[in-house]
Nucleic acid binder design. Structure first.
Lengths: 198, 198
DNA sequence: TGTACATCAGTGAACGCGCGTTCACTGATGTAC
DNA sequence: TGTACATCAGTGAACGCGCGTTCACTGATGTAC
């Protein structure tokens, strides 16, 4: 309300930030156009200068959330020790991808759900989408001789399912009540299972 | 509208059936109290004679859906050949539990989502909830000597995550576009992974 | 450097919608005598 | 077996809410001369 200029200056970015905060607090269903404008201190219809409609705002929020997920995975990848042999590096990379996914889902459940609320593709700093980060880790496992090439095809879906399922059960489902320790333990054992079972 | 009696006779059941049909068509968000009464041919407020509020109707729908899920799992369990040795029976039981879960999610995505939209417990004809059916299958694996007792604890979460994740990705998420064949193949390989990785 | 003017970002008011829920009611049903 | 009556399942009308979206507008900004 106490804007120095008549024009906002960067309303597009401000609305996107407000929408993202709404998603963070309450998931995709909480991304309400009017509430976003309210938080920015602007009239409801002002949003239509910057987004075609409510869906366009939600899509933008979803893309930002997906990019954050990719970045969370990249962060885990970046922390892998350089002093490992190729096979261990490859294994660590798959684990990192899964850990980043699980951590983001638990740390930002609202954004996580927003990311998957639409058909959204977005990449992190490496330019790769979450799916591509997983694919690349699986490729490495084959190159390092850890995963037989015959098992490579379609492996994305298997690893992804395990990690996505635990995320959903923990943030939104019947496993909501798990303690931090329990979640950590379950995550570790789940990644063990994927590694062993692939 | 062309009711023979002034009183409906079984409005509770009729509203629950209508609400369930709404969930089937559009998931938990589609369970709208007014629409349920509309479909039954009754005024909106009539619902309040049978359900405390909208949430109570949704809860009842959710419980019915959860029971259907349990029954889908029981159906798969019942189809296991009796001519197997105990170890193979145990393995088949775990697979059946997973297959029933996946099949129900794919055949009735709206009800599946409704079942998990609230904290809902419900059992099938055996009196066991879906979780208990899984637990029991895992117990059998230990008894049959297929699963080392040291790996038994917490195994529910691992198996459940894998199967739940594939369900969510396929019915609601980025894997929505999979063909029937692809889904069947992915389901089979996922269950292989769980069996091998547990 | 100063002035006229076109642009277009944001305003204020209003719309129609469907929702959950509440109110006072009515009349078919089943029971008590 | 017939009648008076209490019950309570369903009615009709209305409420307030918040939403997405549209309309005609205004006035600060940046540009052209």
């Amino acid at each position: 309300m106490s804007r120095s200029t008549y024009r906002h200056g960067d309303l597009h970015r401000a609305l996107l930030a407000a929408g993202t905060e709404l998603a963070r607090e309450g998931g995709p269903g909480a991304v309400v156009l009017r509430e976003a404008t309210r938080r920015v201190g602007v009239s409801p219809n002002a949003a239509y200068r910057h987004f075609a409609d409510h869906r366009a705002l939600l899509q933008a929020v979803s893309e930002g959330a997906m990019a954050q997920l990719a970045r969370a995975m990249e962060t885990e990848l970046a922390s892998i020790s350089a002093r490992l042999n190729p096979a261990d590096v490859a294994r660590a990379r798959l684990r990192a991808v899964g850990t980043g996914y699980l951590r983001f889902a638990q740390a930002e459940p609202g954004l996580f759900r927003a990311a998957f609320s639409m058909d959204t593709l977005a990449s992190g700093d490496s330019g790769l989408t979450p799916y591509e980060l997983l694919s690349s880790a699986l490729d490495d496992l084959v190159v390092a001789g850890v995963l037989p090439p015959s098992r490579r095809e379609g492996a994305e879906v298997l690893a992804w399912s395990a990690v996505h399922g635990l995320s959903m059960l923990v943030i939104d489902g019947p496993l909501r009540g798990m303690s931090d320790d329990e979640r950590r333990a379950a995550a570790g054992r789940l990644l063990d299972m994927v590694q062993k079972g692939l």
